[in-house]
């Protein structure tokens, strides 16, 4: 099951954020999307998660245009894709309720009502998948804690567990380790690798080039809304075909560097 975008354009209020971007997420592969801030990484992930239609181009599931599908069919596809946001976006509820949210919305209404009634009259045990997802991120002891009382790093791990608990075919992760210390970063990277080994297709938007190198099967370098180059990490790091990729990976191409990036600069040209 391959999730892909083909020649998509997307913008906000007249300005174009993504231009003719094509990218495919194959099962059992990790694709990292790298590039300076404000370059369209989050917009690309939101297109893949069908938050919005592209202005042009197609978002497809196994080659079928998702936006040409009926609502029910599109919902079925959406439920095979989960996303973790840059901000953890947790509900004001205990951790286990956050992690089980995706499982609960997938239940038929009768089952949901029955379960809600059961929870009202007696206590309920979190589902095994919820506990197992929390074990993966090392937070099983926080199962009953309110999610809003967690630290930034813990919240990010709960958000990851929530995305993992629904056993998705594709995971979209927007800066999933930005709030994490090295230990927990390694924990999440291991979880990503285990998901990949189970056949999950993973897209990770990241600023961390070391992480991209560690976990990628393929890297995609996005700059100024354009997909400049894709390929295995070794190729991008060692033999990039585009000068902008080389400059970015050398740490020279930064935010607001759009125009200068196209023209080689002499050392004295910069103030």
């Amino acid at each position: 099951m391959t999730l892909s975008v083909t020649d998509v354009n997307a913008g906000f209020g007249g300005s174009t954020v993504l231009r003719n971007v094509s990218l495919a997420v194959d099962p059992g592969k990790v694709v990292t999307v790298v590039g300076p801030s404000g370059t369209g990484k989050t917009t690309l992930l939101r297109l893949l998660a069908t938050f919005r239609r592209p202005d042009d181009g197609t978002v497809a599931w196994d080659g079928d245009d998702i936006w040409a599908m009926a609502d029910d069919e599109r919902l079925g596809i959406r439920r095979q894709v989960s996303m973790v946001f840059q901000e953890p976006s947790l509900f004001n509820a205990p951790v286990h309720r956050n992690v089980s949210y995706g499982l609960r919305v997938r239940e038929p209404w009768q089952a949901r009502l029955r379960r809600s009634f059961g929870e009202l009259v007696g206590s309920s045990r979190p589902a095994d998948t919820v506990v197992s997802a929390l074990e993966t991120v090392g937070l099983v002891e926080s199962v009953d804690q309110n999610a809003l009382s967690l630290s930034g790093g813990e919240a990010q791990r709960v958000a990851f567990a929530r995305a993992l608990a629904v056993d998705p075919a594709v995971m979209l992760l927007d800066e999933p380790t930005s709030n994490l210390d090295p230990h927990n970063t390694a924990l999440l990277e291991n979880a990503i690798e285990r998901a990949r080994d189970r056949g999950v297709g993973v897209v990770v938007a990241t600023h961390d080039m070391h992480q991209a190198k560690r976990i990628s099967d393929r890297m995609a370098f996005l700059h100024d809304g354009e997909l400049v180059e894709t390929g295995p990490p070794e190729q991008l790091f060692e033999d990039p075909t585009d000068a902008r990729t080389a400059r970015f990976l050398d740490g020279e191409l930064l935010v607001g560097d759009r125009e200068r990036s196209r023209v080689p600069q002499s050392p004295t040209a910069d103030p």
Binding site: L75, S89, Y101, G102, V166
Partner: peptide
């Protein structure tokens, strides 16, 4: 209510009602 709550509910497979 923060937009992120709506985003999370949608991204986790919620319908419009959810």
């Amino acid at each position: 209510v923060d937009q992120s709550v709506r985003d999370a509910a949608y991204a986790m497979g919620g319908t419009r009602v959810d």
